[in-house]
Design a binder for these strands. Structure first.
Lengths: 67, 67
DNA sequence: CTGTGACTGGGAGTCCGTG
DNA sequence: GCACGGACTCCCAGTCACA
């Protein structure tokens, strides 16, 4: 299981726990909706800036998304 | 303190704890020497792939580098 | 040994749309 | 609501010469 897949799984789980659509989440987190879709499918290799945005939005440490 | 600076500090600390030069470390971790220099100065915004390489080399969770 | 400016190819990230 | 595609811009990955 590589980093991208771990991020994908954690991201989808956290988003669904808060009952948000990809579009709502993308908008509120300041990321493009198609990019969120790609991330949740493990199709992208994001920079740490983007991962930080996600972590800040969910109010979890970055390790909770990547480890 | 943003993510890049935290990574920079953690990276330099871990490398120095192991008493490695940037060149030694870069070679052994499979990263270019000047890229390591940039990372330790917070001049780059790396992707999670690169950060994973660092974490694997140091045998620490990714969160230990970014959180 | 390390910092820095410059360079190129490829990929990060965005925006349009479709079923 | 989501997956997926094409097209676009800009920045990152990776390297080099030099101080």
């Amino acid at each position: 299981m590589d980093v991208r897949q771990r991020l994908a799984a954690n991201l989808r789980r956290l988003r669904q726990e808060r009952e948000l659509s990809q579009e709502q989440f993308a908008f509120e987190a300041g990321i493009h909706r198609t990019y969120v879709s790609d991330l949740e499918r493990g199709m992208r290799n994001p920079t740490i800036n983007v991962v930080e945005k996600l972590a800040l939005y969910f109010e979890v440490p970055i390790g909770a998304l990547l480890d």
